Simulated scan of single mutants.
Amino acid sequence: MSELVEQLGLAQPLVSKHLRVLREVGLVQVRDEGRNRLYRLNPQPLKPLHEWLSTYERLWDERFTRLDVVLAELQEDEDGQRSGDAPR
């Protein structure tokens, strides 16, 4: 856990609390090895969430693509006005 505390820059009790919650909901597994506790991610409980979010991922991709087009058009209009061209 000391590596997690160092990497996260959080106090040890706070990291312990978070790990306990993750353990309780089955997102991490822990095993004792001597004086150390080794944590391992258990991604299986996240699978339903991933599947649900993937349906929205396509929607977000489409909307961001459309937003990119609109922003590019706005940029073209702004660049054209700066160079003295008449606005469209």
Rank of each mutant, 00 (worst) to 15 (best):
E51L: 09
E73L: 12
D32C: 10
V5E: 02
S54G: 01
V70I: 11
W52Y: 11
G26H: 09
L4T: 09
D79N: 09
Q7D: 03
E3K: 13
E24M: 05
N36W: 00
V21Y: 14
D61E: 07
E62M: 04
L59E: 12
D61K: 09
W60S: 00
A86F: 14
G34R: 13
G9N: 08
P45T: 00
Q7H: 07
P43C: 02
S16M: 12
W52L: 11
W60V: 03
D85W: 08
E78L: 13
S2A: 14
A11S: 14
R88T: 07
M1I: 13
E3G: 01
D61T: 12
R31P: 08
L27I: 06
R37S: 15
A11I: 09
A11D: 10
Y39L: 01
G84A: 01
R63Q: 13
Q12T: 04
R23C: 03
P43Y: 06
K47N: 06
G34L: 04
G80I: 05
V21W: 10
P13T: 15
E57R: 05
L22D: 04
V5G: 06
D77P: 00
V70E: 05
V30F: 10
H18C: 00
E51Q: 05
Y56F: 14
L38H: 04
Y56A: 11
V21H: 15
